[in-house]
Design a protein around this nucleic acid. Structure first.
Length: 513
RNA sequence: GGCGGGAUAGCUCAGUCGGUAGAGCGGAGGAAUCAUAAUCCUUGUGUCGUGGGUUCGAAUCCCUCUCUCGCUACCA
């Protein structure tokens, strides 16, 4: 029975250009979508851009463009990158869209009418340089803002607040009773520790005098709503929550993907907001770490170790980038990335999968006129090899979506390539080919190798969609609808052509400037 | 300061229930020549961050400390 799976990325802040972290989360979401698709489910992928708030406003003012032009351009940077990354999104949310604003507005009004949003005075230390309130512990020993060396002003202003504390106990119990709600589990622990202390009221308004780029509070025209309150709602506004009769069915199987820095908004504010609205929490939160430079050094422009996703695509291609990212993020912490690591990753693919395809197809082309010997009966050992590969993929695909599941998949792709390369080497088909009496064995080895290749290519589809299709096409296997069909013998006796290399040698210059 | 993560082979990391440490990459040696000089095989005695405790036995549980990263809300 087909079921919906709703997969979301955060909506990305349009203040700057997309970086490798944006690329990763979105690739992960896309890979998960494709996994669900292959299983016969109906996945929906939502991503988008977050276009309100102070920083967007400032960037825009600095550049001096009309706001809608600025936002359109910035949002397009993300859209373009995602297209280049082969992201098959179903929704691209822009918080500046009227439909989104309407829903946010309605939710605000509803919570206000029910007395869940209250107005009160807020007094705090405000640094005009930072344009934000500071806590005492943020200041240096002289009570100055560490960034501006200025004493913050005591400002008192009226604001609207959403009360979180009444829901704290409920959320605590929810997380305790649903230990897999936040995965990996160490992040659930962190959220639980946030819930140990009483939660302060969440200030959900900003006076327009400070921030004008936002959604106006429907009950007070002097304020816009706090960006997080607006942004989180994208996850339901994108589904047109109130009017979508399938909402419950879709939401039941929803996954939020996020980086660890936005754990609190997603795992504290958001479930509480939903609870207040009357919607159950998302099915699962999948949290991941950061990409950092080689040697554990943070990426920064001054160090010149920033990895720009568009440049990487230019040099090693989308699928090699996808593979690297999905293969190398570990489930507990941060993961390193650099040009040389990416090149190493590319080489592993070229030498493993690329070489396997090429050596098998070329020998087939030379000796059997390019016709796949599909009719030959395999030995039990050959069949076992295929069955083992097939079983390993099947068991991975049977798992729930998670970081470790994706990791196992990429590992198993590499392992299978190496296994089959080993098989090929030890069977020495190039020697068998010279001896007419060994023709049957030759055909068995070739068929086994090609069948294995088709299994690997099928399994790799979510990770490397383009490469996967190229391999399958080279074996004359249709690719319109790739499913988790790990049948070990599906090739037909058809003539194939030797294709161009999947991962051609790179020109070194491309990457080393 | 508080909370949380990490600390395991040169590098990046796995290690589920506690039972004498694993993978990939790199390095070294060899085989092979079908293939994008790609492949295959062989090769790792590491104080599992420090000190202590529990245990017949701990990388794995408990405590101390050190280093490191993140969060600590109104910047996202």
């Amino acid at each position: 029975m087909s079921q919906y799976t709703f997969i979301t990325t955060p909506i990305y802040y349009t203040n700057g250009a997309p970086h490798i972290g944006h690329a990763y989360t979105t690739i992960l979401a896309d890979a998960m979508k494709k996994i669900e698709q292959m299983k016969g489910n109906t996945p929906l992928l939502s991503t988008g851009t977050d276009e309100h708030g102070q920083k967007n406003q400032h960037s825009c003012e600095k550049i001096g463009k009309p706001i809608d032009v600025f936002l359109e351009e910035q949002s397009a940077l993300f859209k373009n990158l995602f297209n280049r990354l082969n992201i098959d999104y179903d929704f691209f949310v822009r918080t500046s869209a009227a439909s989104h604003k309407t829903i946010v507005s309605r939710i605000l009004q509803n919570l206000y009418d029910r007395g869940l949003i209250i107005k009160k005075n807020y007094e705090g230390l405000y640094c005009e340089g930072c344009e934000q309130f500071k806590k005492k512990c943020d200041l240096d020993e002289n009570g100055l803002c560490p960034d501006h060396q200025v004493k913050p002003k005591v400002i008192s202003e009226e604001n609207y607040f959403f009360r979180l504390e009444p829901y704290r106990q409920w959320l605590k119990e929810y997380i305790t009773n649903n230990p897999d709600w936040i995965t990996p589990r160490n992040y659930a622990k962190e959220v639980l520790s946030m819930l140990e202390e009483p939660l302060e009221d969440l200030c959900i308004s900003r006076p327009k005098s400070r921030v004008w780029l936002g959604i106006e509070l429907p009950f007070d025209k002097n304020f816009v709503t706090y960006i997080w309150f607006d942004a989180l709602i994208n996850y339901i506004s994108t589904l047109d929550w109130e009017n979508n009769e399938k909402f419950e069915e879709i939401w039941k199987n929803s996954y939020h993907l996020l980086a660890k820095d936005i754990l609190k908004p997603h795992c504290v504010y958001w479930p509480i907001m939903l609870k207040a609205i009357g919607i159950p929490p998302v099915h699962r939160c999948i949290v991941h770490g950061y990409w950092i430079g080689e040697g554990g050094i943070k990426m920064s422009k001054s160090l010149g170790n920033v990895v720009d996703p568009n440049e990487v695509i230019d040099s090693i291609g989308t699928d090699a980038l996808r593979f690297y990212l999905l293969n190398n993020m570990n489930s507990t912490g941060d993961a390193p990335i650099s040009i040389s690591l990416l090149l190493q990753g590319y080489r592993i693919l070229a030498n493993g999968l690329g070489n396997l395809q090429m050596r098998a197809l070329k020998i087939l082309d030379k000796n059997l006129n390019g016709i796949i010997p599909a009719e030959v009966e395999l030995t039990n050992d050959d069949k076992k090899l295929l069955q083992d590969i097939s079983d390993s993929f099947k068991s991975i695909y049977a798992q729930d979506l998670s970081l470790s599941m994706v990791n196992e998949l990429t590992n198993q792709i590499t392992n299978a390539c190496s296994l089959v390369n080993g098989y090929f080497s030890s069977e020495e088909p190039w020697i068998l080919a010279k001896d007419p009496s060994k023709s049957n064995r030759f055909k068995q080895v070739l068929k086994t190798t090609l069948e294995a290749l088709s299994l690997i290519a099928t399994a790799a589809y979510p990770i490397m969609p383009k490469i996967s299709k190229e391999v399958l096409n080279s074996l004359n296997i249709p690719t319109e609808n790739i499913i988790t069909d790990f049948n070990i013998e599906k090739l037909k006796s058809e003539k194939i052509k030797v294709p161009e290399p999947l991962f051609p040698p790179l020109e070194k210059k491309v990457l080393e400037n």
